[in-house]
Design a protein around this nucleic acid. Structure first.
Length: 415
RNA sequence: GGAGGGGUGGCCGAGCGGUCAAUGGCAGCAGACUGUAAAUCUGCCGACGAAUGUCUACGUUGGUUCGAAUCCAACCCCCUCCA
């Protein structure tokens, strides 16, 4: 590989963000120019927040902005109404307009943490493809753009081929997804000066279609860049855990939980995640990833704090780290643990421990809570609860620490 | 429109009149071992109840039967092939 001239691509390469690029040299030359250029990544609006699965993409936009260029967040308000069939076994449910609007608002709040929005030349902008897609005229669109797409070509695309090979239905609606995505690219190139589209590796086919459409219909040289699919070392997709998706919104997953998610990273993922999800200097990461055994836990803590700082702010991250330190290393009940309030007289009357577990969200039902106790999974102030009908009858001054397993803790306090 | 196949718990997938709250796998939770890791082993894994138990659940609605996830009918949805 030739040495890269642009800061943007140098950083992306060093941090292992790049999987494929349509024209690395061309893009490098563009990124090395002094004038900012715009690049975009599309996100769909199927949920009210984004989760860790999209974090690589978000970080790429952040890096772009840091390198002095303009990130554009394309919200798929229009395409969400179709559903991307890429590598999906089944059609996605179609969402109503109200839900989509709601989702867009939630997602906007996530991005505000990672990017600087505004009107300046390198300020981030959020656009919704519904703006132009809903105005399309079918006949005109077919005539102007439809003729540039080869069905033969589209059928040979992996994402489509998989569906066909498995003899699963692929509706025409979904088949159009890639056409619209390609059109988005050209539309953004014309009206927002976009030259580059980035995305996950599963978007490669769609992105390439857009690059070609740009050349054919607008005579613009566009670029595409994809990031590798991020899985954990044991092969699981990023962002799914016990309690569901790891959301980036604080109201969907608390900063403390978010910190815990990163803290529990597998050993062999630490270096890779530090590069992708934190902004620590490369030299520091190189040092951290050589740690072994129990010492590697220090690296995980740094990973957790740095990653949490990006999504929730430095203060929240430090708090989460401190709460975890007290809870796990001192065994103390940090007063910043999630709190469960119980009425005074309820305690005096004696309250079942299993009820507390349900209240704390550590068990979904009384039965589950009792099973948990039977399985020796519950502790009160670090003492294993042995009787499934044990009651809590008094509260210590600072409350009582309730633990389900080794990792989930809450503080029971009087209300 | 015609012919065939199918819809079972978070997912995959058995069951095909009673012994079915439904085999098995995955995912998940807990315990042991550790380092809040991985791997491994053990237990749990519909709701309510202290419990014999009660309730809800095998696409929907009816029916047959002492008894239905299992049989019948209609309907809805999905898939394949033909038109």
């Amino acid at each position: 590989m030739t040495s890269l001239k642009s800061e943007f691509l140098r950083v992306l390469t060093e941090r292992r963000y790049i999987h494929q690029c349509t024209d690395l040299e061309g893009l490098d030359a563009l990124a090395a120019e002094r004038a900012p250029f715009a690049a975009y990544i599309g996100f769909d609006a199927t949920a009210p927040s984004l989760h860790v699965g999209s974090l690589v993409q978000i970080m790429m936009l952040r890096r772009l902005q840091q390198a002095g260029h303009k990130p554009i967040v394309l919200m798929g308000g229009g395409t969400t109404r179709i559903g991307d069939p890429s590598f999906r076994d089944e059609s996605r449910p179609l969402l109503g307009e109200a839900r989509i609007a709601e989702n867009l608002a939630g997602i906007k709040r996530v991005f505000a943490k990672f990017l600087t929005f505004g009107d300046g030349p390198t300020d981030a902008v959020m656009v919704d493809n519904d703006e132009w897609l809903s105005k399309l005229n079918y006949i005109a669109f077919l005539r102007d753009y439809g003729r540039h797409f080869s069905v033969n070509r589209m059928l040979s695309q992996d994402s489509v081929k998989i569906r066909l090979d498995r003899e699963q239905n692929l509706s025409f609606l979904e088949f159009n997804y890639m056409i619209l995505q390609a059109y988005d690219f050209v539309e953004l190139a014309r009206n927002h000066g976009v030259r580059l589209q980035m995305g996950g590796s599963d978007q490669w086919g769609n992105i390439v279609q857009g690059v070609e459409l740009g050349r054919r219909t607008a005579d613009i040289q566009l670029y595409g860049l994809t990031s590798p699919l991020i899985t954990t070392a044991s092969g699981a997709k990023m962002g799914k855990t016990a309690s569901g998706a790891v959301w980036l919104n604080a109201d969907a997953r608390s900063p403390y939980d978010y910190w815990q998610f990163w803290r529990n990273t597998e050993d062999s993922d630490v270096g890779r995640f530090l590069r992708l999800f934190t902004e620590l200097p490369e030299a520091e990461i190189a040092r951290l990833e050589t740690l072994e055994g129990a010492e590697l836990n220090d690296a995980k803590k740094i990973l957790a704090t740095e990653a949490t700082a990006l999504a929730h702010g430095r203060d929240e991250a430090e708090n989460a780290a401190e709460t975890a330190r007290k809870t796990f290393e001192e065994g103390a009940a940090a007063d910043t643990l999630p709190k469960v309030e119980v009425a005074k007289d309820a305690v005096a009357a004696g309250i079942n421990v299993y009820e507390l577990l349900v209240k704390a969200g550590m068990a979904a039902s009384n039965g589950e809570a009792r099973r948990l106790i039977k399985g020796k999974g519950v502790k009160l102030d670090d003492v294993t609860v042995t009787d499934e009908f044990a009651k809590l009858e008094a509260l210590a001054e600072g409350g009582v620490k309730l633990s389900a397993g080794k990792k989930r803790h809450a503080l029971i306090v009087e209300s």
